[in-house]
Amino acid sequence: METQVKKTTAYDVVALIVLIVLAFLFIFPLYWIVTGSFKDAIAINSATPEWFPSEPTMDNFVRLFDKPALRWLANTVIMAVAAMVLTCITAAMAGYVLAKKRFFGQKILFSLFVCAMALPKQVILIPLLKEMSFLGLHDSLWAVILPTVGWPFGVFLMKQFSEGIPTELLEAVRIDGAGEIKTFTQIVLPIIKPGIGALAIFTFINSWNDYFLQLIMLNSQEVLTISLGIAKLQTEMSNDFGLIMAGAALGSVPIIVIFLMFQKYFTQGITMGAVKG
């Protein structure tokens, strides 16, 4: 934004104070997770909460790693990375032709993608589970990866980014005799790279946190994700809040760090995905 001298009004000051209070409230649950994970059983189960762990302990984490928590975390990473890579490849290819080529059935296909996006994703989970059982993929990480890749948001986003590729450039490359694949890998990909970055981080975070899909598809101990692991801890030992908070910290801190590192791309992804084509 350009430099603009704007006089500060009383409203601006009040608004800022309100924002700071709200920010505090929004950060608080995360603070409570992280500090809670270092509190001992006495501090956890006392009616008077400790605002900061007076005697920090690693005990919760020791007990957490007695369970296959690292396995849960590894599964989550494998799932999110696989979903991310597959989504980026398929969506980049599809988005490019939808934006830059003229072909039979284009309009209908694009409307189909957009309509599907407006439908409630969770409604199809039950038939999806049946389909996965039929394919023999139920209770494997594929059962959560494949539906994530199928979701058309990525195509939509990549189409938005591909609109920015200069048509003249593509024509010039064509006249020079470059093939379709070469055009895509050498001209198109470098131009839509920021879009792919946005889609990658977006898919990674969403896949990591898609609890409902994971809940329905995964059962066995070996394929549980961190979200399912925490949920399981919660049902099995509902009042062991220290242990549960340690799990919650393990599940959320890595993804928050990734988010903060790439938040610029992420914001861009959300914004571009909303522009109506």
């Binding site: 946190n209 979200s227 919650a248 959320s252």
Partner: peptide
């Protein structure tokens, strides 16, 4: 800050 609860994940947010 306002995006934080989304990134933290439903399960972690819910248990706290």
């Amino acid at each position: 800050v306002f995006y934080l609860p989304v990134v933290t994940g439903t399960v972690a947010v819910t248990v706290v």
